[in-house]
Computed example of a mutant assay.
Amino acid sequence: MRESITLDSTRLQRLQQTPLWDFALALYAKPGVEAACLTLQEEAELDVCEVIFHCWLYTCGLEAEPAALARQREQRRRWQCHVTTVLRGLRRDLKASAASSESVARLRETIKQAELMAERENLQRWQAWVWEASSVDLPVRNITEMPLDSAKWLRKQLLYATTDPPASAALKSQTASLQALQTLTLQLDPHQGAR
């Protein structure tokens, strides 16, 4: 059944009652989600924060407006590139040294915490983008028809106006990436497989 394209204030209210960080922690703790997110990050070169953001919207029956999403995605990717990815690289570079040095292990743990804080900041910026938008220029809309295959819906959201051809190609073709999306969406909609 088709729903109105006009934004349903109940859906937006439900979204505002669930902070994105809290949603991310709960989703990440579900079986298979951590591995799925790492697969999407490593193999499809996707921003896991954006993936979780779309999952958050989906649970409230909302999706991002494509044009607004493209602008926001660019800002969030700059943050990931200049902050989070740098911290992740440092943490990974110190892994071997940390095995034989307690002081390097402590430094690596500090960097790991900074990386987590950078991810949290990115999620908070995604959330603010929706919560602080004017009622005239909202960056989200109702999902007009709830998808029968939520993994395909999520893939479509991640490919809206993507400017990164390698990630787009990886997401379209790699079996591991498609399975990772399926794992995520089954956690959002556990009845998905029964339809």
Results as ranks from 00 to 15, higher is better:
Leu38Thr: 07
Leu25Lys: 04
Cys60His: 14
Arg71Trp: 04
Ser101Pro: 01
Gln13Trp: 04
Thr144Phe: 01
Thr6Asn: 07
Glu3Leu: 10
Leu178Cys: 08
Thr85Asn: 14
Glu145His: 11
Val83Lys: 11
Ala64Ser: 12
Gln72His: 09
Ala194Glu: 04
Arg120Glu: 05
Gln124Ala: 09
Ser150Tyr: 02
Cys60Trp: 04
Ser134Ala: 05
Ala151Thr: 13
Leu90Ile: 15
Met117Val: 11
Trp56Ile: 13
Asp93Val: 11
Ala161Val: 01
Pro165Arg: 00
Leu181Arg: 10
His191Ile: 01
Gln179His: 02
Ala151Asn: 06
Arg155Phe: 00
Gln41Glu: 03
Ile5Asp: 02
Asp8Arg: 11
Lys112Cys: 10
Trp21Met: 05
Thr59Val: 15
Ser4Arg: 10
Glu132Pro: 00
Gln113Asp: 05
Pro190Leu: 02
Glu3Phe: 08
Ser4Asn: 06
Trp21Phe: 14
Pro147Arg: 02
Tyr58Gln: 08
Leu116Asn: 10
Cys55Tyr: 00
Tyr58Leu: 08
Leu154Pro: 15
Leu181Met: 10
Trp126Gly: 07
Pro31Val: 09
Glu43Tyr: 00
Glu121Arg: 01
Pro31His: 02
Glu74Gln: 15
Leu90Arg: 12
Leu154Glu: 03
Trp129Glu: 06
Ala133Ile: 04
Leu15Ile: 13
Thr183Arg: 08
Gly89Ser: 14
Leu87Val: 13
Ala99Leu: 13
Leu12Met: 12
Val104Ala: 11
Glu63Thr: 07
Glu145Val: 15
Ala99Gly: 06
Pro19Gly: 08
Arg78Gly: 11
Leu12Arg: 15
Cys37Lys: 09
Met117Ala: 15
Lys112Ala: 14
Ser97Asp: 13
Pro139Glu: 02
Gly61Asn: 07
Gln80Gly: 13
Arg91Pro: 03
Gly193Pro: 09
Ala44Glu: 00
Gln127Met: 06
Val136Phe: 09
Phe53Leu: 05
Trp131Ala: 06
Ser168Gly: 04
Asp22Phe: 07
Pro31Lys: 06
Val86Gly: 03
Cys55Glu: 00
Cys49Ala: 14
Arg73Gln: 03
Ser103Cys: 03
His191Thr: 08
Glu43Arg: 04
Arg88Pro: 04
Lys30Ile: 01
Glu121Tyr: 07
Glu3Asn: 04
Ala118Cys: 08
Thr183Glu: 02
Leu87Asp: 02
Phe53Ser: 08
Leu178Ser: 10
Ser97Lys: 08
Thr59Pro: 01
Asp93Ser: 15
Arg92Glu: 06
Tyr58Cys: 05
Gln179Trp: 00
Thr110Phe: 01
Tyr28Asp: 12
Thr39His: 02
Tyr58Trp: 14
Gln174Gly: 02
Ile5Ala: 06
Ala70Met: 02
Ile52Leu: 14
Met146Asp: 03
Lys112Leu: 14
Arg106Thr: 15
Thr18Ile: 06
Glu132Gln: 15
Ala128Cys: 09
Asp22Gly: 10
Leu154Met: 05
Thr84Ser: 12
Gln187Trp: 11
Leu69Arg: 05
Asp149His: 12
Ala68Trp: 00
Leu94Ser: 03
Gln179Glu: 04
Leu27Gly: 05
Thr110Cys: 06
Asp137Pro: 00
Gln192Arg: 12
Ala24Thr: 11
Glu63Tyr: 09
Leu171Pro: 11
